[in-house]
Amino acid sequence: MKIKYKLYIGSLLLAINFLFAGVCIWRFPDKDIQTLFSKATGYKTEVLTYSKPERVKIESLLGAKLDDDETQFNFYRIYKDTTKIGLVLTHSVKGQYGAIEVVVGLGSKFDSATKSNKVFIKNLLIQRDREVKSKDLRSSKFLDQFIGKTVKSKFDNITLVSGAEKSTQAIIFSVRKLLIVQKVLDQERVKQNK
């Protein structure tokens, strides 16, 4: 096998390592972490998979199937020293001209109405895209509309980026999916454990 591998190299053509798993990875944590959580001191990666009923639940909440390669999700737990202060989730979604990779920073606060912790979007950014309207999609004018949204929020009040309507919808879908995944795989599991 090794020899064969060399053989390919030799055919000049450069061997490129594709280290892509099914999950979309967080590409620039060092840079992004400051944007998302200014007080953060570090993070830990936790890989979560879902059970069959959990998948069914995610899909029914989302109103769409999970992608075939979405067999696991990376939960990047954000710490300030030893205290957990938030969570980063990433997702790659089909945009208009290629994939858009969304990075969402989630925070939580106590909700006195439900007497439980409410998970909300603290901040979000786009780590990769091939969009013609990339600038608009990455603008805070657009992205700030997502701040504060929870899994129960409605997204129809988000102003679409003109000329990139399809991509805007894709980003909304992506964000919703991450919120639902967090709810099912994280929040509800914690509840059950209690």
Partner: peptide
């Protein structure tokens, strides 16, 4: 094939090089 997978592109889609 790997490009198609990463960029979620299929035949008939468009790709943009910024």
């Amino acid at each position: 094939n790997e490009v198609a997978y990463q960029e979620k592109l299929g035949v008939g889609d468009e790709v943009y090089f910024p």
